[in-house]
Amino acid sequence: MSWQIITRSLPIFLKAFELTLWLSALGNICSIIVGILCSLVQYFKVPVLHQIVTAYVELARNTPLLIQLFFLYYAFPVIGLKMSAQTCGIIGLVFLGGAYMAEGFTGGFAGVSPSQIDDGKALGMNNLQLARYVVFPQGFALSMPALTANVIFLIKETSIFSVIAIPELTNTALDLIGLYYRSNEYLLVLVIAYAIILIPVILLLNYLERKVRYGTFGD
Results as ranks from 00 to 15, higher is better:
residue 17 F to R: 01
residue 25 A to D: 01
residue 71 F to W: 14
residue 122 A to L: 13
residue 169 L to V: 13
residue 9 S to C: 04
residue 27 G to V: 02
residue 56 Y to Q: 09
residue 130 L to C: 10
residue 75 A to W: 05
residue 145 P to Q: 05
residue 132 R to A: 11
residue 83 M to V: 02
residue 197 I to F: 10
residue 8 R to M: 09
residue 74 Y to I: 09
residue 130 L to V: 09
residue 138 Q to Y: 05
residue 114 P to W: 09
residue 140 F to P: 05
residue 142 L to F: 12
residue 176 L to S: 07
residue 131 A to S: 06
residue 100 Y to Q: 03
residue 106 T to F: 15
residue 84 S to M: 01
residue 13 F to P: 10
residue 120 G to I: 12
residue 50 H to I: 06
residue 162 S to D: 04
residue 28 N to K: 00
residue 79 I to K: 03
residue 25 A to F: 15
residue 113 S to T: 04
residue 56 Y to E: 10
residue 85 A to L: 04
residue 55 A to P: 01
residue 151 V to S: 01
residue 63 T to L: 11
residue 145 P to I: 02
residue 41 V to E: 04
residue 36 I to W: 02
residue 106 T to W: 08
residue 8 R to N: 14
residue 101 M to F: 11
residue 88 C to G: 09
residue 178 G to Q: 07
residue 7 T to N: 09
residue 214 Y to F: 13
residue 68 Q to V: 13
residue 27 G to K: 01
residue 124 G to A: 11
residue 110 A to V: 05
residue 187 L to W: 13
residue 126 N to K: 04
residue 80 G to I: 02
residue 139 G to S: 12
residue 14 L to I: 13
residue 133 Y to F: 15
residue 186 Y to C: 02
residue 29 I to R: 00
residue 36 I to P: 00
residue 15 K to Y: 12
residue 168 E to W: 06
residue 124 G to C: 09
residue 97 G to S: 02
residue 204 L to N: 00
residue 96 L to C: 11
residue 153 F to S: 10
residue 150 N to Y: 02
residue 117 I to K: 13
residue 198 L to I: 15
residue 4 Q to I: 09
residue 77 P to G: 02
residue 46 V to R: 10
residue 173 A to I: 01
residue 44 F to A: 08
residue 56 Y to V: 03
residue 168 E to A: 11
residue 90 I to L: 13
residue 216 T to C: 03
residue 55 A to Y: 08
residue 95 F to L: 15
residue 180 Y to H: 13
residue 203 L to K: 15
residue 140 F to H: 08
residue 146 A to C: 06
residue 101 M to G: 00
residue 185 E to C: 00
residue 203 L to V: 10
residue 10 L to P: 06
residue 117 I to W: 07
residue 169 L to F: 00
residue 157 E to N: 15
residue 202 I to C: 07
residue 63 T to Q: 04
residue 43 Y to N: 04
residue 149 A to C: 05
residue 80 G to N: 01
residue 142 L to W: 05
residue 143 S to L: 11
residue 154 L to V: 04
residue 101 M to P: 00
residue 184 N to T: 12
residue 205 L to I: 00
residue 159 S to D: 02
residue 138 Q to K: 10
residue 85 A to M: 02
residue 165 A to S: 12
residue 195 A to N: 08
residue 160 I to W: 07
residue 6 I to E: 04
residue 130 L to M: 15
residue 122 A to C: 15
residue 117 I to H: 10
residue 126 N to S: 05
residue 147 L to Y: 13
residue 45 K to Y: 07
residue 112 V to H: 11
residue 51 Q to R: 12
residue 207 Y to G: 02
residue 30 C to D: 00
residue 32 I to Q: 01
